[in-house]
Design a protein around this nucleic acid. Structure first.
Length: 853
RNA sequence: GCCGAAGUGGUGGAAUCGGUAGACACGUCGGUCUCAAAAACCGAUGCCUUCCGGGCGUGCCGGUUCGAGUCCGGCCUUCGGUACCA
């Protein structure tokens, strides 16, 4: 054994051995209960970043821990390989997306292997492989049959920079989630998945996923946005048409005094009378000019225009003027709103502006609302008034009664409205899964026959960057014949959103080489659901919702028997680092700062607060450099020790040094005691006393603590801290020669407990400690309950709740003994002088509080 | 606005059920070793103080309790999500 810790040498040795012996390869036939651990697979951007290091370090601890506990652990890795960046690289430097992607995968695979992650590499998959996406095309065909996939023309989000449409989930504050460009609304013919058909089930199951963080479940619930209300039809005065509205407040129907339509509403123009036409056209044009950001901002003034037409309130029979209003959205509900100014703030403001009548129909308790003096709408509950037969009902009951009344007359019904929209899945891009349909002038949209799958992405293609889908310009791909009538036909040139591939890769990992179907039923039945899924919270309403939806789709097609894919979810925090900026030159790298000044212009540098590592902010740490300098074990240890996994991790170079020093100390302590420990006898627990017995107690307490910290709760930082404490205790142990067997157990325990976190150095130390077989075969250590018990215990003595002394008593001492000991403590006595003891409260094994007055 | 999470030393963070606030680590200071430096090791480190002791301290105000970082009521701040959602 070398005196100095040499991580590079050790890590190379063990990684080579793992590559050769494949100890992490698994099959259904292996013994033990199954445990499926999965981290969100990466996009092959070219290099791993600290976020990957953190994500995969966390996962690897759990995988290794569960394996040591005897579970049959499935821990796979693959590549989310389709997507825009590959295509952009092709346009910029002429590299084919397939080549670019394959090279990136090769690089990143090397990087991941350098981290010593315990993956079953035999299950590796890449979604751009036809052997993967062919099954996605098959599932799509089944969805088409069931009407779960369909094509329609709709106003959709268009990203001008990516030159493709986007799903609602992929638009953040009106901007493209990938490139941050402002998205535009365009009316286009696109493919959708009917996720809305699963809205209720997706929502329902958010209440049956106790292993998920509340924050993610709440986000999904809000995204689905269920609201229960009524649909009501308003007949248009003098015309044979009616306007349907959605409202959550049917109880306020008697107070509806006008109607507001979205400017895009199909009846907007037809209902406009000739003399109002000019004003209405002006208004529509004005609204169109204003983009959605402004249109949806808080201080945007409510404006509208009268169409000249009226509709009839179905309960009062009164005429209500029909307005177009800028705050009514075509995309929610029916695009028409019955306006109740007394009980809706927006309608109230609108009514005041255009001098429309305000009628109070809900009277709150203990207050009388009068239209003339009101300064805001009353949106709360109350008692119904001015509502004919419904007068006197509370508003909640009124909702039901009014709806029943309308239903009986065929004018309305109870309904549920969701905010969730169908998932727009077609993209006008090359680097994705081809959508397997053919357009025939005679037969229309014709699915590609299953026997013709896969529809392979053609490789001979030019990337001009001049707009439009590259596939559309490739006649050899586009021109085909109709599978139904054999006449000339055209292929679909759109590809799938890359979130489609990531919606089922976790199922394919159960049987990545299966050639008969998307998944092998027995393998999925065995491995799924994923017992623990780990990834960033940024996918809360994208990937995590789509994957849940897709699982239910495959279940309903009959391919699997699974309701939910992920049993437990851990959303790890971001990796952050402070930023530095020069007022003149913007963000700066650390090496561009000299003594707090910009190295170029000597201006004082502003140190920003911690922000997510990003190249643009120049606050990234490159994992490769870190691993070269300290080794993978140190990199892993720091990311696990610095912060609990679900919180953001603040990068600290000195903290990394500290972790490296700790591993050096572990190494040195083993090295220094190697001779002592080599021939140590077995422990005879009954003969131990004094410091030796205390040390053994620390050992077993640490085993218990670390086990409980890892298992289920992921308190890796405190688990590592506990091992550090144990190491400190061993270092400080006097006369180690007197009890080599206790030192041996202590050192071996340190190595075993650390092995899920820092596997290379632990394997190496384990070998030096005289174990020819891998540490992985030794199992997870168990603690000896009897070793945890101490002879004495420290009791804190409080007087009136303040700590005044500490006494040591025999373990299990009765209250009287503790009280006597406490009362004779010199410092405690000072606080009792001249006072009467009113009562004494004993907390067994912990503390005594003496109450005096 | 609504929903969710969180506020603890100079810093990252610990504190099962309400029971010693600040574990562990970083940083800083002092020391040992050294010609010197690095490494390593030892010690100190919440603030104040009259320093074997005491006072004050977990965002703010109040409450419950023998005892509150932890429970209750009311605020403030930060972060994340979402929004003219009818």
């Amino acid at each position: 054994m070398q005196e100095r810790y040499n991580p590079q040498e050790i890590e190379n040795f063990w990684q080579a051995r793992w590559a050769e012996e494949k100890p992490y390869r698994v099959s259904e036939e292996q013994g033990g209960a199954k445990y499926y651990l999965l981290e969100m697979f990466p996009y092959p951007s070219g290099r791993i970043h600290m976020g990957h290091v953190r994500n995969y370090s966390i996962g690897d601890v759990v995988a290794r821990f569960k394996r040591l506990q005897g579970f049959n652990v499935l821990h796979p890795m693959g590549w989310d390989a389709f997507g825009m960046p590959a295509e952009n690289a092709a346009i910029q430097n002429g590299t084919h997306p397939a080549v670019w992607t394959r090279e990136n995968i090769a690089n990143m695979r090397v990087q991941l292997k350098r981290m010593g992650l315990s993956y079953d590499w035999d299950r590796e998959l890449a979604t751009c492989d036809p052997d993967y996406y062919r099954w996605e095309q098959l599932i799509f065909l089944k969805m088409l049959e069931k009407g779960l996939a369909y094509k329609k023309s709709a106003a959709v989000n268009w990203c001008p920079k990516c030159e493709t449409v986007l799903a609602n989930e992929q638009v953040e504050e009106e901007c493209c989630w990938r490139c941050d460009s402002r998205v535009e609304q365009q009316e286009l013919d696109q493919w959708f998945f009917r996720i809305t058909a699963y809205a209720e089930e997706l929502l329902d199951w958010t209440h049956k996923l106790p292993g998920w963080p509340d924050s993610v479940l709440t986000m999904q619930r809000n995204w689905i946005g269920k609201s229960v209300g009524s649909e009501i039809d308003f007949r248009v005065d003098g015309r044979d048409e009616s306007i349907r509205v959605f409202t959550t407040r049917p109880d306020t129907l008697h107070g509806a005094t006008f109607m507001s339509l979205a400017p895009e509403h199909p009846l907007a123009i037809p209902l406009t009378l000739p003399d109002r036409r000019a004003a209405v056209d002006d208004f529509i044009r004005k609204v169109q000019r204003v983009d959605n950001i402004q249109r949806t901002s808080d201080d945007y003034e409510k404006e509208g225009v009268f169409t000249g037409s009226h509709c009839i309130n179905p309960v009062t029979g009164e005429k209500m003027p029909i307005y177009l209003a800028n705050f009514v959205l075509m995309g929610y509900g029916t695009g028409a709103v019955m306006a109740v100014p007394a009980h809706d703030q927006r309608d109230f403001e609108f009514a005041r502006k255009y001098r429309l009548p305000v009628r109070v129909v809900i009277q709150p308790a203990g207050e009388v609302l009068t239209p003339d003096t009101m300064t805001a709408a009353w949106e709360g509950p109350g008692r119904m008034i001015a509502s004919g037969d419904f007068d006197g009902l509370d508003s909640e009951t009124g909702k039901v009664r009014v709806t029943e009344h309308l239903e009986a007359k065929g004018l309305g019904k109870q309904t549920v409205n969701y905010r969730l929209r169908d998932w727009l899945v077609s993209r006008q891009r090359y680097w994705g899964t081809p959508i397997p349909v053919i357009y025939c002038d005679t037969c229309g949209v014709v699915p590609v026959p299953e026997s013709d799958l896969p529809i392979q992405l053609p490789t001979e293609i030019a990337f001009t960057g001049e707009g439009g889908s590259p596939l559309a310009g490739l006649s050899s791909f586009v021109n085909t014949s109709c599978p139904a009538c054999a006449r000339p036909a055209r292929r679909e040139t759109d590809t799938f959103d890359t979130f489609v591939e990531s919606s089922w890769y976790f199922l394919r990992f159960a049987c990545p080489h299966f050639t008969q179907a998307p998944v092998e039923r027995s393998a999925v039945d065995y491995w799924l659901p994923v017992d623990q899924y780990i990834g960033g919270v940024e996918h809360a309403v994208m990937h995590l919702l789509y994957a849940r939806f897709w699982t239910k789709i495959m279940r309903d097609i009959g391919m699997i028997a699974l309701d939910e894919p992920f049993e437990n979810l851990l959303t790890q925090g971001m990796v952050c680092k402070e930023t530095r900026a020069c007022p003149e030159h913007g963000w700066l790298y650390p090496e561009e700062v000299l003594d707090g000044r910009c190295s170029r212009c000597a201006a004082e540098v502003v140190t920003g607060r911690n922000e997510k590592m990003s190249k643009s902010k120049k606050n990234v740490i490159d994992p490769d450099g870190l691993i070269k300098r300290y080794g993978a074990d140190t990199a892993r240890l720091f990311t696990l020790f610095a912060s609990p996994p679900e919180k953001d991790l603040e990068w600290n170079d000195q903290g990394v040094d500290g972790c490296y020093r700790f591993l050096n100390r572990v190494w040195r302590l083993v090295y220094e005691n190697l001779d002592l420990v080599r021939d140590a006898a077995k422990i005879d627990a009954s003969s131990l006393d004094g410091p030796a017995r205390d040390l053994r107690r620390s050992v077993h307490r640490t085993i218990k603590k670390v086990t409980e910290d890892i298992d289920g709760s992921f308190h890796f930082n405190t688990a590592i801290a506990a091992v550090m404490e144990l190491l400190n205790a061993i270092s400080a142990f006097p006369e180690k020669e007197s009890c080599p067997e206790v030192i041996k157990e202590a050192l071996e325990t340190v190595v075993r407990l650390l092995s899920p976190f820092v596997p290379h150095v632990c394997e190496e130390l384990w070998r030096h400690l005289g174990h020819p077989e891998s540490l992985e075969l030794s199992g997870w250590p168990s603690w000896d309950e009897s070793a945890l018990i101490a002879d004495t215990q420290l009791i804190v003595v409080q007087v009136n709740g303040k700590v005044r002394g500490k006494v040591t008593v025999p373990a299990g001492a009765d209250d009287r003994t503790i009280e006597t000991a406490a009362l004779s403590d010199a410092n405690v006595e000072r606080f009792l002088e001249g006072k009467t003891v009113r009562k004494m409260i004993v907390v067994p094994g912990r503390l005594l509080n003496i109450v005096v007055g």
